[in-house]
């Protein structure tokens, strides 16, 4: 079964079982997102992809498209909500972009540019979570984690290693390494693992390659994430 729904006033076709986000992307319409990845089931934690359907805010990564739905996405209201969500993520962590190796290649930062966020507005939490430099090839800075669980999912479902997990509740939730010592160096984690290469922000960093790409040539230097993300809409988030 297939049909059409209205996306910001334009008809978008869908196949049965496709989510709003998938169908919109297939039709060339970008919806901002952080925790969604085309190779994994929806996660629903970042809430950036939310759209308005029938007066309600829903996660477009998780909701199946239905015939005749009227979806609002690129509106001042929805973009304002998305900006507020980004501001929350920024104050929850220590996002000091000027010294972060991921700057220019970071999806969180690129979303903030996309949605014209000029400040994080809320009071900062300044979390204190020690970095883990125990692994020979990988460095972990837990203070930048946005809890998308892409590393958790990649390590468990693809690499078959279950190196990462989220632990604790509420604002105390944080990323941990599944080892007796809690140290990445004591796991069988490898720099070639999918989990080592999927972090959308600056938590999982490869050692000795930081600041290798000149400013101006980084992923999101030239064009916004909405353009980069749609260049290869099948496989790239």
């Amino acid at each position: 079964m297939s049909g059409h729904f209205m996306f910001d006033g334009r008809p978008v076709p869908f196949e049965a079982g496709q989510t709003i986000l998938e169908a919109a992307r297939a039709a060339g319409h970008y919806i901002p997102h952080l925790c969604w990845h085309p190779d994994f089931p929806p996660h629903g934690s970042c809430k950036l992809c939310m759209v308005k359907v029938g007066g309600r805010h829903v996660s477009s990564c998780a909701l199946e498209a239905k015939e005749g739905m009227e979806v609002e996405s690129n509106t001042p209201e929805m973009n304002g909500e998305r900006r507020a969500l980004l501001q929350m993520l920024f104050v929850e962590g220590n996002h000091f972009c000027p010294s972060c190796e991921k700057s220019g290649n970071c999806q969180l930062q690129a979303q903030a540019y996309e949605l014209e966020m000029t400040s994080a507005r809320f009071d900062h939490f300044f979390p204190v979570r020690p970095v883990d430099a125990s692994h020979p090839d990988i460095l972990l800075d837990f203070n930048r984690c946005i809890f998308c669980e892409l590393c958790v999912r990649a390590s468990r479902d693809v690499d078959g290693k279950s190196v990462f997990a989220l632990t604790n509740r509420g604002i105390h939730k944080h990323l941990v390494v599944n080892a007796e010592s809690g140290q990445l160096g004591d796991t069988d984690f490898s720099a070639d693992d999918l989990a080592a290469n999927i972090c959308p922000v600056g938590v999982i960093l490869h050692k000795r390659v930081g600041f290798e790409v000149p400013i101006g040539e980084r992923t999101y230097d030239e064009v916004p994430i909405s353009v980069v993300s749609m260049r290869d809409k099948g496989s790239k988030p």
Partner: peptide, 15 residues
């Protein structure tokens, strides 16, 4: 600038 906006790199002393 970053410092006025979120404390910036000097705020790395906050931990």
């Amino acid at each position: 600038g970053a410092c006025a906006i979120n404390g910036g790199l000097p705020a790395q002393r906050n931990h």
